[in-house]
Amino acid sequence: MYAQMVKSTGQGVKPREEMSEEERHFQDRVDAGEKIEPKDWMPEGYRKTLIRQIAQHAHSEVVGQLPEGNWITRAPTLERKAILLAKVQDEAGHGLYLYCAAETLGVSRDDLTEALLSGKMKYSSIFNYPTLNWADIGAVGWLVDGAAIMNQVPLQRTSFGPYSRAMIRICKEESFHQRQGYDIMMKMAQGTPEQKRMAQEAINRFWYPSLMMFGPSDKDSVHSAQSMAWKIKINTNDELRQKFVDQTVPQAEYLGLTVPDPDLKWNEETGHYDFSEPDWAEFYEVLKGNGPCNTERLEARRKAWEDGAWVRDGLMAHAEKRAARTAAQ
């Protein structure tokens, strides 16, 4: 999931009899599956929670370019390089669709960027892990994009129109990302013993961080309860994580690779895999800024923002000058 631990109002779901007339009408529309559009009346908590969630999602797409961008110049073939370039460009596009959706809620793009750069807003924990070799690029596409898809597919039905439309567009493109990752993994798993070992080490590195993407169990969280009532969250974190494990384990088996979990086993009774939880202490450390790449990632984003300032200002000055000249004629 690209949005983790998004705080809502923190007050739980308001009972219907305590709702105002407007709130009741709003909740009825959401319950009926109607889309809420930017100019419609909405509770302040809905607006704020959505801004946090969509922006965190957008920031994740943008920061998510960094671990993969790291390998564009070192891709093993020209074809792989072109594919990776296209994928990373898609991530930038996904960030832009989402920022636009957030902006319809009355927040400015620059404010969102500043909030990311100051550390006030978060991005997904997963992008604070390094991509050490080419097999990691396969694992990122397969596991990280696979986990993202698990979250994004149900979000196509979210109650906020612009967010839903952005998700529909993103999901269409995301499938390419996961498949290209799995394609890299297949190539390596069927390659030399050395390549196969690299593929195994990549899944060893990315398995638990991918499970963390869904966030800790939120079955008792008041934030999640409210978000689910508003349909800006569709499934619990545990449901999505289980779905991801169930889908991914057979894919690993096909590759002849081992999921790095000695307790992983098929449970005949539940019809799901039993699996080990990731190390949540590590997760919280990464969120606090102490992951392997937190500093590097934010520095890269700050540098891009600061180095690009003169271009943004220059183009704006040029546009204003030209507009003034046209007006004077």
Binding site: L96, Y97, C100, E103, R165
Partner: peptide
């Protein structure tokens, strides 16, 4: 299809090409 930021119309069309017509 959506929106984007650009300094002027010419750049807006160029950016729209990249953001909304990659496929």
């Amino acid at each position: 299809v959506g929106s984007l930021h650009a300094p002027d119309a010419e750049m807006a069309i160029k950016n729209a090409r990249d953001v909304y017509t990659r496929r």
